[in-house]
Simulated assay, not measured.
Amino acid sequence: RLEQLIRSVKDTIGAEERNEIMSDEQKFEAFKQRAVAHNEEVYGAEIRAKYGDQEVDEANAAVMNLTRERYQEWTDLGREIQERLEDAVRSGLSPESEEGRVLCALHRQWLTITGNQYDPAKHRGIAELYVMDERFTAYYDKQMPGCARILRDAIVHWVK
């Protein structure tokens, strides 16, 4: 994995130095590798200590295996979830409502686009992180406070 990242960085630098135009596929591969490298640099030690090398390596591999189409689907779905969360908070919807059920289902789909096996206990655990870890809360609440909590509450209610 590290060799692949180094090769990609060297290819990107070389293309820049030669004023070459990288193909969209090359750009996408470099983007994924930068994203994985950034995640490792910022969170690697913490998540490896908490979840283990195998779990983190599998998550990184899942990102690296995404096609552009699946990546676009993943980001579009993430955006839809965020917009629906903000609408739910704005309108005071209950996490136990039909919209709460839909949010929960969309979040499940978002979690599994990268190829991860669905596990209800992990889904609930991830949802708890959204309110326990201020970094996750800040991400979901960046535009409207309360989004992380309503997502967590919907998942807790609907995932059995």
Results as ranks from 00 to 15, higher is better:
Ser91Lys: 10
Glu99Asn: 09
Arg152Cys: 01
Glu41Cys: 03
Gln143Phe: 05
Arg34Gly: 03
Glu83Lys: 13
Arg68Val: 12
Ile81Gly: 10
Ala37Phe: 12
Leu85Gly: 02
Val36Asn: 00
Met22Gly: 08
Gly78His: 05
Ala61Pro: 00
Glu58Ser: 06
Leu2Lys: 06
Ile6Ala: 15
Asn19Ser: 13
Ala35Asp: 15
His38Asp: 06
Glu55Cys: 01
Ile155Phe: 09
Asp133Ala: 06
Val63His: 07
Ile13Arg: 07
Ala45Pro: 00
Glu3Gly: 08
Tyr118Arg: 08
Ala121Thr: 10
Glu98Lys: 14
Ala37Arg: 03
Ala35Leu: 15
Gly52Leu: 01
Tyr71Ser: 12
Met22Tyr: 11
Ser94Cys: 02
Leu93Gln: 06
Ser23Asn: 10
Glu99Gln: 10
Ser97Glu: 10
Arg18Thr: 05
Glu128Cys: 09
Val56Gln: 05
Leu77Arg: 10
Gln33Arg: 14
Trp74Met: 14
Ala30Lys: 12
Leu77Lys: 13
Gly100Arg: 02
Ile150Phe: 08
His157Leu: 10
Ala127Ile: 04
Val9Gly: 11
Phe28Thr: 01
Asp133Leu: 07
Tyr43Gln: 07
Ala59Leu: 11
Ile13Gly: 01
Gly14Trp: 11
Leu106Lys: 03
Lys32Phe: 13
Val156Ile: 14
Arg68Phe: 09
Leu103Arg: 14
Ala35His: 15
Leu93Pro: 00
Gly14Arg: 12
Asp141Gly: 00
Gln143Cys: 03
Thr137Gly: 13
His107Gly: 01
Val56Ala: 06
Ala154Pro: 15
Gln82Tyr: 12
Val63Thr: 15
Val63Gln: 08
Val102Phe: 00
Ala138Gln: 11
Glu17Gly: 01
His157Ala: 04
Tyr139His: 03
Gly92Val: 00
Ser8Asp: 03
Arg108Met: 05
Lys142Leu: 07
Asn60Met: 05
Thr112Glu: 11
Arg68Asn: 12
Asn19Met: 13
Glu16Arg: 04
Ala30Cys: 10
Tyr71Cys: 14
Ala127Val: 09
Glu29His: 07
Val36Tyr: 00
Gln54Phe: 00
Leu103Val: 13
Glu29Cys: 07
Gly78Tyr: 08
His123Leu: 09
Glu41Val: 04
Lys32Pro: 11
Ile21Leu: 04
Glu20His: 08
Lys122Met: 11
Tyr51Trp: 02
Tyr130His: 08
Arg79Cys: 00
Trp158Tyr: 05
Met22Phe: 07
Asp11Ile: 11
Met144Tyr: 03
Asp24Gln: 10
Gln4Thr: 14
Trp158Ala: 07
Ser91Met: 11
Val156Gly: 04
Tyr118Ile: 07
Thr114Asp: 03
Asn116Phe: 09
Ser97Tyr: 06
Glu73Asn: 06
Glu46Trp: 12
Phe28His: 02
Thr12Lys: 13
Gly100Leu: 02
Arg101Ala: 08
Ala105Arg: 06
Val42Ser: 11
Ala35Glu: 15
Trp158His: 15
Glu58Ile: 04
Ala127Glu: 03
Asp24Leu: 06
Ile47His: 02
Ala127Lys: 11
Ile113Trp: 08
Arg135Lys: 03
Asn116Ile: 12
Ala138Pro: 09
Glu69Val: 14
Arg18Phe: 05
Gln117Arg: 14
Ile155Arg: 08
Ser94Arg: 03
Ala121Tyr: 02
Ala61Val: 01
Ile21Lys: 11
Val102Lys: 06
Ala154Glu: 15
Thr75Leu: 04
